[in-house]
Amino acid sequence: MSFDYDQYIRGGKLPHIWCPGCTYGIVFKSLLRAVDSLKIPKDDVALVSGIGCASRLPGYVDFNTLHTTHGRALPFATGLKMARPDKKVMVVSGDGDATAIGGNHFIHACRRNIDITVLVFNNFIYGMTGGQYSPTTPSGHLATTMPYGNIDPSFNIPDLAKGAGASWVGRGTAYHAAALDKLIVEAIQHKGLSVLEIINACPTTHGRRNKFKSPTDMLLWMKDTALPVTAFDKLPPEKTAGKFPTGVLFKREAPEYCETYYGLVERLKSPKEGRA
């Protein structure tokens, strides 16, 4: 039986704003399948975003949804989660939203290891504003504000997340949708801050300017350059040049922020230990 997306999509809110060929729709469907498989009641989920094409996603889904200011989804989400630690809080963010204007919030959310699932839609460009370079735009690529080719070094989002203290880090692509379902499920199930980078394609403002003849070419590029991390790790560096690993890239057990905080609250209740 085919999956019933309508149970999650808000009535009358489609069509969405995304361009033909944009891969965000693929990821959107993957997210709905993943959440459905976990059987979390809709009332218990908050989906928070910043500003950008990716950040428009929450508006279409029948959860508690919060479309905030550019880069700031994580601190808004942190407020929700600290006030209601028993609920599921997820964030959808673009590469610019999460790692440029929101970079400081991103690393500090990772450091706190608060139980929030962060899905970073990396399309290597500022899509919504028309194709300016982002902190993930590959070297040499053309962008409206890098008309002679990008000279800015770029971030590797999973490395950034791991370095900042996130306790679960993964990468998937819009091309590998079935694998993506599983990664989103695992990211949501993980207790602590999980960052899932999802490689996306923006044909409108990135692909067209950078020798991708069609949106399909961009999907095929994902197919050709993504390697499951297990295979990637076994290959010598010369064989992995230009490729990127996908799957669960890193995980560790670490105290979750709300548990630690509310553990303190419990301790303070017993007069012996509460010294404050």
């Binding site: 808004f76 942190t78 407020g79 929700l80 919030h105 500090h108």
Partner: peptide, 23 residues
Amino acid sequence: AFLQMEDEIAAMAAIIGGSLAGA
């Protein structure tokens, strides 16, 4: 809940989140 955030932008965002969740 008490939070020292990474900056004032984040602090303002966090209290809006907290308030939306009922606090």
